[in-house]
Structure formats: C-alpha cells, structure tokens
Amino acid sequence: MSKQLIKQAFQEVLDQGDKAFVPYIMAGDGGLDSLEEKVQFLQESGATIVELGVPFSDPVADGPTIQEAGIRALKQGVSLRAILEKLGQFKENRSIPIVLMTYLNPIYAYGVAAFARACRTAGVSGLIIPDLPLEEENLVVKELQANDIALIRLASLTSPPDRLKELARRTEGFLYAVTVTGTTGTRATFQESLQEHLASLKNICQAPVLAGFGVSTPGHVKELSANCDGVVVGSKIVDALHQNNREEIKTLIAAASSKEQAPAE
C-alpha cells in the first residue's frame, strides 16, 4: 500500500507530462506542531512527495543549512519517536506520500523492527538513509519489506557503472541521483557531465529518477529535470520555510510543471 502510494503519486504527475517535485523539510524545525500545516501547504502547492528530514546530531552528508535546521529541531526536543507519532495523528488529513530521510543511528536506537512497524502505523511510505550503502543494507531491508516501506537508494557521481546498475535495480519508490560530489546545500552550477549521467541513470532504472543536492532555483528545476523525472529540493526549501517565504517555494514547485515556462535568469 505504501509503496503503491509513491507509485501513484509519480504516475499522476508524469502522465500529465509534468516533472515530479519533492521538497525536503526538517521535521520539527519551527516546532512539530506546525508539521501538519507545512505538509498541507506543500501538498496544495503541487509537491509530489514530501521528504521529511529527521534531525541528527552528526549529519555528515549535510551542508550548513540543513545542519542548522537540525540543530534548531533538536533544541525543540524533537525525536524520531515524536515525529512518527505526529505523522500518525494527521495521516487521514493528507494524501501526499511521506518519505523519511534519516541517518541510521536514530533507527538503530529505536530498534529496526519496531521502527519499521511504527513507520507503517504513521503512514510513512519510504525511507532515505544517507549513511547506509548497499554493503550494509541487510540491517534494515527485511523489516522494511515486511512493512511495505520503500528503501530509496542514492546514486552518486562517483559510483562506477556496476554499482549504479545495482542501485538502480534495488531501489524502491525512486532513485535519488545525487547531483554533486559533496554535501547538501545550494550551488550556483553543476558539472557538465551531469546531464549525461542523469540520462544514463534514466536508461538503467525502472523506477523514476530524481535529481537532488544543490537544486536551488526554478532554472535548476527545469534544467535538471529535463533528463530525468524530477527533482528533490532541500536546503532552499528549508531556508524559505525558516524565513517564511512561501511564495518562493510555490515558484520552485511550479517550475516542475510543463505549463510553466523556463524563467528568465
């Protein structure tokens, strides 16, 4: 059911000739009480899926914006347990699928089996675990499978072809194509070979391929989704929500629609 939800969400968008837009927000940044309203806002603004970050004390894959959002959330006392409880409370009020982005240790501390069950109860459809490579994923795959939670794999620019193939083969929900060699956070430009890289991932992957890391302008959204199925936007959304600059978020999301012209930059 959960995985199916992700599939349907993509289908609706892609069938119309649009691209998928997945905003990342940090759970508990600004307090967990505002989570429902933020998810509603993103759903109404046309997001395809919401990627919900779980704050962690040592987020090695993240740049300054998301690190700071995590620190703000942790200062509010936000925990993985509290996030799942909150998600469960308004699960009837949302139709947009939720995927969690969490480092492994909060899951490990929770207990993998209990965590996977809690995800199902809370209506979480998928998981992104940035510090869990193929070699170690048997720590979680069985429990996630049993609870119908998609494990979304990340493909990097440094991964050699055979690893990319394996990542594309195993991924569930979508393939997260990391667009930079580095941490999350805004970038002015991307390396030239990126378009080719995305196109080749698209070729080897049955699931939708989304580009993420550093995507921060409507121009990026257009440019990067041209050769794949859409984008994930993190730091820019986190920043805009923190500044309460909602128009900027709407503009970003609208850029994934086929009706929207590429903005002049």
Binding site: A61, D131, L132, P133, S156, T158, S159, R163, V178
Partner: peptide, 20 residues
C-alpha cells in the same frame, strides 16, 4: 571481508564515499 569485527564495524558512509 566486509570489515566487520564480530557484530561491529562495517562501512556506514554515503554512497559518494563508497568507491573511495
């Protein structure tokens, strides 16, 4: 061979670092 010492150890790094 996978870098495990009993039930500990391993390689818990982002995919970008795995090839390195």
């Amino acid at each position: 061979i996978q870098g495990h010492f009993g039930s500990f150890g391993g390689r818990f790094v982002p995919e970008t670092l795995m090839p390195a």
